[in-house]
Design a protein around this nucleic acid. Structure first.
Lengths: 160, 160
DNA sequence: TGGATCGTTTGTGTAAGACAAACCATTAAT
DNA sequence: ATTAATGGTTTGTCTTACACAAACGATCCA
């Protein structure tokens, strides 16, 4: 049952491992993020915003793959803490353009710095190089998935 | 010159990316797992069990970093579907030794096979080689973290 | 002018999971 | 032998993170 002349698929999928690691990371992150007034999903939102600054809320909802109404609540949290700003888009004034404030960017940096210890603990099985590789892979996967160009070969936006 | 004058930490942490990717993966996984009568956490439990077959429930709780009472519920689900078996440990009959049944192992394999499409979609930004690397890294990180050797074990601070 | 779109609010429902209390069976300590 | 501790189980309560629907205002567009 163990030794197979593996022809095609490697039988193992990443999903479970990914889920498991994420859980471990988030459990520990909560206590670190708590004193900063953040929760894991806030951090995710801020991270996305750093990469996609000036997105509309729909863009964010799509990137986060999260219901629009919940995105509103999430952004409300961040806005009352002055971490983000909502401005009316000049081109279409229905839209809100969401932007990271200086405060937000700094808090994000502080949070990431504070999370170093957490990641050291969870990723202690990996060398520094391996962690760097992991980061790169995750980044690459995340960005590429952002536009659903993978599934829909139709009208690919500039990238992907 | 690949080496920069890196003074401190690279400012980016994996946590947010990991969380994001996991969410994307799980959202899509649900619909695939649903017809099999599984949910993401069941899959995680089965995956852990494949690696740690014959664990006690406390071991599982520790690995899954999940409350004991909830592990009971999780295992109840799996047992009523005949995916796992609980047997009394002969060495300490208070303990339950949890084991994957044949049915469970086969369903797990089927689930993983069915998830191939999902991972293809989410990891479309990565080549096959990169996906393999990712899997290896995740596996390595997960296993090493299992024993809390990193944090406990010795006195010296976080240079595990 | 009327219909679609973006954001917002409110409200309902569900699932995961933490946590506590009480229980049984078993084991270990005295 | 009695007692205390342990592994598992059940029940029940609480919180959080969502999804989803409905209704609204503002804006755009035809």
């Amino acid at each position: 049952m163990t030794s197979l002349p593996v022809v095609n698929q490697p039988p193992h999928r990443c999903g479970a491992l990914l889920g498991q690691l994420t859980r471990r990371l988030q459990l520990r992150s909560e206590s670190v993020l708590n004193p900063l007034g953040l929760r894991p999903r806030h951090l995710i939102a801020l991270t996305v915003l750093r990469d996609q600054d000036g997105s509309s809320q729909q863009d964010l909802a799509k990137t986060l793959e999260m219901d629009g109404t919940n995105v509103v609540g999430l952004l409300n949290d961040l806005e009352t803490e002055n971490l983000i700003e909502r401005r009316r888009s000049p081109v279409d004034r229905r839209r809100h353009v969401v932007e990271l404030t200086d405060v937000g960017a700094k808090l994000l940096a502080r949070a990431e710095f504070a999370l170093a210890a957490v990641e050291d603990e969870v990723f202690c099985g990996l060398s520094d190089d391996q962690r760097e590789t992991l980061y790169t892979l995750l980044q690459q996967a995340t960005n590429k998935t952002e536009f659903e160009a993978c599934t829909e070969a139709i009208q690919p936006p500039p990238t992907c």
